[in-house]
Design a protein around this nucleic acid. Structure first.
Lengths: 235, 235
DNA sequence: GTCTATAGCTGGATAGAC
DNA sequence: GTCTATCCAGCTATAGAC
């Protein structure tokens, strides 16, 4: 039986390496989880895609859940670090730029791994999937990875927008997460509605549109919301 | 063995009815799918929650997938109809109100079923889950149910915002979907970041915040995006 | 129409040879 | 560390009594 060599990858210097079984498993499962979701992918599918044996997965990772967890922590840390790095370049005390803060938050999340040959984009999708799952496991993993940097950004936004009440800012942060995750998920909805004209998969395009949109939302004065008439009595 | 009567529901007139097995199955599965996702819930769990037999599910629905499909079509149509109804109340030719259009789109999606005793909120979550799944089946179901009304709203937005280019409008519509779905998913992320102060589950609160936020984003002049500097060369 | 029983698979995980 | 062979729990779906 021929072993799969489809997962070999070539580096910038032109040399070709055969990734370790462990690495091939992480790459293949990241891809598959992103595409089909956590529960929909069996480890048998994963080992077939990685060209390794069933037992190898358990040897290297112990369990399917542990595999997901290791993928996630490996990818999440660079994102959080890059966010903090970009944020630190912005002087918050002196005319902080809302747009720059938003870009520091969004760009690492959207672009991470886009310059590696295999599996890069997959993690972006995978993370978006996990973010909308109310399941406890995925939620805990996410919280551990991103709570700290998110807290710092909420703080930075408060400095950049001193006139916006904290509660309002938290709602808007939530809305930002929604637009970010939905863009990352690349669920294909807007492509089908616009015959492909609008494509969230084009990252630079997405960033160029999302930042002004969110900035305007963040800056809007809360008083304006009195124009909304409640059509049903709140319960 | 005692049959479960926990799913009985009482109507406004005070009478108590025992829903049919078919209805109990739909209610229970809607709830469970929303909470744990499509693949994570077995039909054994569903029938146990509904207090019926395993075979009853297949008798009434034929298959698990058909059950999901029936739940979805039953709930989606009222949402689309209510959207269109609210939209028709707005005179688009004469000073169309952006906020009213947004409310007509968002309110039915967020509140549908909130006035029934059981299972109402569940569908909101379920729909948000399906919306972020790239899986073909869920995508097709969603497209069939909502493509038409979404198209009408894109058109209405174009009328209300004649100075915004169509391509820009499509991006912003995509961003609106993201904030809407993430609010509907109620993934708990913002609650944990803010110690529960911000809660997307409070629908009227959510609407009061989301509409001004989105309206500001929709109205912002596209020229402003030149303030964003691309930090990496587009590929 | 409602139930019990079970067929027929596929899932994650492991034992033990090499 | 890598493989084959296998365990067995859990799944969807159906057959057939009542």
């Amino acid at each position: 039986m021929l072993k799969s060599s489809a997962l070999e990858t070539s580096l910038d210097d032109g040399s070709a390496i055969k990734p370790s079984a462990r690495q091939r498993l992480m790459d293949a499962s990241e891809q598959l989880f992103a595409e089909h979701g956590w529960n929909a992918v069996s480890i048998r599918t994963i080992v077939a895609a990685a060209g390794v044996n069933l037992a190898a997965l358990h040897y290297h990772f112990g369990s399917k859940e542990q595999l997901l967890s290791e993928i996630f922590t490996a990818r999440a840390k660079p994102i959080a670090l890059e966010r903090i790095r970009l944020l630190s370049e912005i002087d918050l005390d002196d005319a902080p730029s809302l747009e720059r803060i938003l870009e520091a938050f969004l760009r690492p999340a959207l672009t991470i791994g886009s310059d590696v040959r295999f599996g890069g984009r997959a993690f972006v999708k995978l993370r978006a999937r996990l973010a909308t799952e109310p399941e406890a496991v995925s939620r805990r993993i996410l919280a551990n990875a991103f709570d700290e940097s998110s807290g710092e950004f909420l703080h930075a936004l408060a400095r950049a927008l001193p006139e916006i009440p904290q509660a309002e800012l938290e709602w808007r942060f939530h809305f930002m997460l929604g637009t970010m995750f939905y863009t990352m998920a690349d669920a294909g909805r807007i492509q089908s509605l616009t015959n492909g004209r609008c494509d969230p998969g084009r990252v630079e395009d997405a960033l160029a549109h999302i930042i002004p949109f969110l900035a305007a939302g963040f800056r809007s004065k809360p008083e304006l919301k009195s124009t909304i008439r409640s059509r049903r009595r709140p319960k």
